[in-house]
Design a protein around this nucleic acid. Structure first.
Lengths: 147, 147
DNA sequence: TCCCCAAAGTTGATGCATCAACTCTAGGGC
DNA sequence: GCCCTAGAGTTGATGCATCAACTTTGGGGA
């Protein structure tokens, strides 16, 4: 790797981390939830009926199922989502909002959306936006083709 | 946020996570270390004399000191770095490689460098590279001006 | 009908990231 | 010489991310 390559890589890593840290802090400060919690809530929000199975969320989020399972355990204890449990083992078969979770995500969609715009979208020139979009799409397609 | 904005943001987040996960796995598989360990080792490698104080590494890495302290504890137990300890409290005053750590980073510089090139640099068109570089630089400057 | 298997979900362990609070240390002003 | 404070480093707690191994469940075919 040339020094120039290294510099680009380094800058990318650092910028990426600064941005996500900034946004995560804002979310915590303004809405009281983490980025991971936001991801789950917004995904649930976008599913018809605001109700989903664990596997549906896994699919939509692109997460590993164990990650989501742990996350749901935490979110349940924070009264953000509530599961329908079934069978003798009591595993989760359906996930939906609690009243609290619904209220949080409604606020967060606005507030966090503004933060994303302010820290990311608004800072991009049109050509930067186009480049980043095309890079992201081709990267997703390369590493995780077809879902 | 428009649906288009949302899509861009989502794609960016997902691409970023896929890429870092892929690289972290490669590093683990090929070199037996994590991304965090690589960061510390390469930073130490780049300091003159291959010896640094904790605060120097904090500065060069842009990490919080507690993060580095925890990381050094783990890396010490994995025989990657060795501290000079001093005072009755035995705190670390200088960090340097173990023989093992030095050998690992020498290999990793080549192997991980190739992985970075393969998964990131080589995939970028010149205009994407320029856009990402300029975005990264302006983001760093905006969030963390002057260090 | 019964078995088997694949899919769904869980669990435990480990490491990374962050925050808040703490201790130690060195150096300057008196 | 003595105090006092700013900086250096540590610690404990908590949450996120990943891996490997496990259990349960629901169908489909012999």
């Amino acid at each position: 790797m040339t020094p120039d390559d290294w510099e680009l890589w380094n800058a990318w890593v650092r910028a990426q981390r600064l941005l996500t840290r900034e946004l995560d802090r804002g979310l915590q400060r303004d809405c009281g939830i983490s980025k991971a919690e936001f991801s789950v809530l917004v995904t649930l929000w976008r599913t018809p009926g605001h109700e989903a199975r664990v596997a549906d969320l896994v699919e939509a989020l692109g997460w590993e199922k164990s990650r989501l399972s742990h996350q749901l355990t935490r979110m349940e204890s924070r009264d953000l989502v509530t599961p329908t449990r079934s069978g003798p083992s009591g595993r989760r078969t359906g996930i939906s909002f609690t009243a609290h979770g619904r209220s949080i995500i409604q606020d967060a969609l606005v507030i966090h959306g503004n933060n994303i715009r302010r820290h990311f979208l608004d800072e991009l020139t049109p050509s930067q936006a186009a480049a980043i979009r095309s890079w992201a799409e081709q990267t997703i397609e390369r590493i995780e083709p077809a879902g």
